[in-house]
Design a protein around this nucleic acid. Structure first.
Lengths: 76, 76
DNA sequence: GTGTATTTGTTCGTATGTATC
DNA sequence: CGATACATACGAACAAATACA
């Protein structure tokens, strides 16, 4: 379990983003694959939905993923 | 684009409030109508959410609008 | 077909920490 | 010190579209 550190240099939403970005880079998450849903990320990293949504928004801004409403977010 | 002036006499939250109050007074925003969401105001006037929330709180205090949780803020 | 669960979208409420003037 | 402003975070409620039994 890759728990985040609330006292780290990076804010929680960035820490979660870096974990997912790392998984995309090293192939654990591949192109076309769906990343965990908001609910799953909330449970996995023990953060709020607001934080998870910020995380995904950041990944979208980085051009790493694409979100399809009612479907999920997919690796680009 | 009605940008605000960060160096103006009035603080940003008041400048935004005056713009909206003006729109209510001259009828561009009518009774019962919803004013733009926090997110929209943030983008439109390029201020933070806190500022936007202060703006709306101010308009509420002035008796110009009414905020309904999870719905929006409406002209009174 | 119908209803339920899932998933993302959107909105407001509240709190804390930091920085500036 | 107080007021202002921003960034971050958590919570809560509802809508809309899709998936599925």
């Amino acid at each position: 379990m890759s728990r985040i550190d609330p006292t780290g240099k990076l804010p929680p939403y960035r820490q979660v983003a870096e974990i997912i970005a790392g998984q995309i880079r090293d192939g654990r998450l591949r192109k076309g694959e769906r990343i965990p849903s908001e609910s799953e990320l909330i449970e996995k990293y023990e953060v709020s939905r607001s934080t998870v949504r910020r995380t995904v928004a950041y990944l979208r801004d980085q051009g790493l993923v694409e979100t399809v409403p009612t479907r999920g977010t997919y690796v680009l």
